[in-house]
Design a protein around this nucleic acid. Sequence first.
DNA 1: CCCCGGATTGAATCGCCGTTCAGTCACGGC
DNA 2: GCCGTGACTGAACGGCGATTCAATCCGGGG
Lengths: 208, 208
Amino acid sequence: MARTATPAGDPDAPVDTRRDQMLDAAAELIAERGLSRTRIADVAARVGTSPALVMYYFATKDELLIEALRHSEAGFYQAAEELLDRPATLGERLATLVDLTITVESQGEVRGHWGLWFDLWAEAFRHPEVARDRRALDEQWRDLVRRVVEAGINSGEIGEIDVQTFAVTWTALLDGLAVQVALHDEVVTPERARDIALDFAAGALGLA
Amino acid sequence: MARTATPAGDPDAPVDTRRDQMLDAAAELIAERGLSRTRIADVAARVGTSPALVMYYFATKDELLIEALRHSEAGFYQAAEELLDRPATLGERLATLVDLTITVESQGEVRGHWGLWFDLWAEAFRHPEVARDRRALDEQWRDLVRRVVEAGINSGEIGEIDVQTFAVTWTALLDGLAVQVALHDEVVTPERARDIALDFAAGALGLA
DNA sequence: CCCCGGATTGAATCGCCGTTCAGTCACGGC
DNA sequence: GCCGTGACTGAACGGCGATTCAATCCGGGG
């Protein structure tokens, strides 16, 4: 029945398979219009084929959409990891994390992925399976923060602190700020959000 | 929680018009299933009538849903205002605000309104009109926080501080924490979220 | 009593998708 | 060349749900 499995044969060769194109297209569309308003026909159109082919690759619409969410978020974290791989000071890394989170929509590659998060949250709120995924994603994100901070501790840039509490608090703060920015709150401009996030981090970590 | 149609008039029901019943029902349903999965027929059923009557009161489905969102959130803020009306120390009031925000689902009157927020955010992200509403709501919320803090300053409980920045930061933090709690993140338990929120406030405000 | 208008309804209508199906098409292997 | 198979398609099919409509129902004012 299921054709869900990825092309098991080729070990890391063909990256831009039809399936992936569809996942990308779906992710874009979800970000733009939202989960519920994303039709199979739209995805098909964006990839330049017929709805039937989409069904050929994904058993059901839900499967496509959910997998698109996963796909997209995974890409986000991968990008984040790469950005943090290069050497930098703790301060620079924190700034990178902030900029990654508080993205003013549109701009380049890291598309308006906040549209995705909103829908992901709404979905996770009622579907345990999605909720599980989301939790894993967030844990991954907190882990990133933790590692960055620990690196700072080990390098002597800052003293010992409760890394876990900092991670939980700071990521929550970032989420909250990002929501406001994504929703164009006049009071919470991107710059202001950035300042707040960095100030808090500096204060909590005891940075210059 | 409303149940079957109460035939005769409630003794003290002020304005429990059909319209309001529908708005309440719609809000409940949205919280439970989400905007997109809330059908007119569902609302009708919950109020104990036919879909046609719903159309009689609301020109279109969207109108009903959007208005239901407004209706519900307005109720929330009103409840908040009332809670803060009674005399209390700054610390107690802050705790009240936290508890109002970080509600473990179900619980009494202020039902799982987080389901509503997620959908509201998602909707606001793409519809300017809804976004405007939402901004107003949040400004109202920040204002509440501001007034509470200012009361604390005036009463001498704490010293002067940048009230606006505190409000922006703290509400963002609350939102972020509430998201995690609403989504049952294992790392961010309700108690932990509460502690974090109150600790931050205490620190930022210079409270005991 | 009768009439009027608002409230209410059951039964259509109708458009919009998701999904299915019965095939083509292209191509590599034989 | 022929076959098999997997990619791909156009054209249905079917159901779900919003919206419409022509009636009823009912209470109150005249």
